[in-house]
Simulated assay, not measured.
Amino acid sequence: MTRFLLKRFALMALLLFGVSVLIFLLFALMPGDYFSSNRQLTPQRKAELRALNGLDQPLWLRYLGWLWNMLRGEFGYSLAYSRPVTELIGPLLFNSFLVAVAAFILTWLISIVSGVLSATKQYSWFDRLVTIWLFASLSVPSFFVGLLMIKFFAVDLHWLPTGGMLNTGSTSTGIEQVIEIGWHMVLPVAILTFLGVGSLTRYFRSGMLDVLRADFIRTARAKGLAERSVVFGHALRNALLPAITLLGFELPGLFAGAIITEQVFNWPGIGRMQLESVQTRDYAVLMTITMLLAFLTIVGSFIADVLYAVADPRVRLVEARQR
């Protein structure tokens, strides 16, 4: 297992290096920059500012400087906000993680339960409701559902806040502030969960249906095992294997979905910051956020590989034979 982990770590490092090269070239070769969009600057002043920020240097030299600073935890300087990128997106990143992690946990819990029950009760009324739910979550745009939920729960019923992270003029601290933030998280988390549950439940349902028809399930039932033990002890563990491979795309997928969700609910996260940086061509912020999403994808794939090896003994057997 140690050799397996070391190989995956080495592969992660190579992938991150390759992704960093692609991200830097993507933004460095894009036409225009922050200064070119400012019509108040003269061409001479634009050239001076580009030279001051090192934008007139060769690409390879700019990349090495960016990579070295990134390894030291410095992600550049935001020209639009006149602040270091780390100070700018640090608090916003925490806010986005609150919503993304809560939605991630709820998505997997609901998907596992609904997928298992739908497969064990195939063609029942519950299975039909789950199928309708799947098509609805895959078909309806997130911004449309978000606006409907704001209209119904916030404007009409006054049960939940319309947006933001805290109430206007709030001075709450301690546990009161935590409760207030949690209350504001309900709608954004509900939207991300609704969108994520659809596709993931489909994988769990189809995986459970295939496993429940396998020979070893019939053997387990013939031995007299309880149905709950057969479903959760034998079938679910094998049905989890295809879904584990999706883990590498879940976290970055939640952050990508949060870009629209944060805009709809006025949630102060990196999604809104990314949209604003696109408009102002603040490439330092865009490169940092894109690199973060790539890092989450690679780390998620690494976690999926490890979980796959833990869940499937055949992977460990193949790894042992290669030694």
Rank of each mutant, 00 (worst) to 15 (best):
A10Q: 15
L11V: 13
G18Y: 04
G18V: 02
V19L: 14
S20A: 08
S20R: 03
S20H: 02
I23K: 00
P31N: 05
P31Y: 04
P31A: 07
P31W: 08
P31D: 07
Y34P: 04
Y34G: 10
R39F: 13
T42E: 04
P43G: 08
L49C: 13
N53V: 10
Q57F: 01
P58V: 06
L59A: 06
Y63T: 04
L67Y: 14
W68E: 15
M70E: 11
R72C: 09
R72S: 10
S78M: 01
L88W: 10
G90V: 09
P91E: 10
L92A: 15
F97Q: 03
L98K: 10
V101W: 00
F104Q: 09
L106D: 13
T107Y: 00
I110M: 02
L117R: 05
K121Y: 11
F126R: 00
D127F: 12
W133H: 05
L138I: 13
S139L: 05
S142E: 15
S142G: 06
S142D: 12
F144Y: 13
V145Q: 11
G146R: 02
L148C: 03
M149R: 00
A154S: 06
V155Q: 13
G163T: 08
G164I: 08
L166I: 10
L166P: 02
N167M: 15
T168C: 06
T168L: 12
G169E: 13
T171K: 15
G174L: 05
V178R: 04
E180T: 05
I181Y: 02
G182Q: 12
G182Y: 00
M185K: 03
L187C: 00
A190R: 05
T193R: 01
G196T: 04
G196A: 08
Y203A: 13
R205L: 05
G207F: 03
M208N: 00
M208I: 07
V211W: 01
L212A: 06
L212I: 07
D215P: 01
D215N: 07
R218Y: 05
R218G: 02
A220V: 10
G224T: 05
V231D: 05
F232Q: 10
F232A: 10
L236M: 11
R237V: 11
A243L: 14
A243P: 11
L247R: 03
L251T: 07
L251M: 14
G253R: 07
L254R: 10
T261I: 15
P268V: 04
G269I: 02
I270N: 02
R272H: 03
L275E: 04
E276A: 07
V278D: 13
Q279H: 06
D282R: 00
Y283M: 09
V285H: 01
L286I: 11
M287A: 02
I289G: 01
T290Q: 14
T290I: 11
A294F: 03
F295P: 08
T297V: 13
V299R: 03
G300F: 09
S301A: 09
S301D: 08
F302D: 07
D305C: 06
A309V: 09
R314Q: 12
V315A: 03
R316V: 09
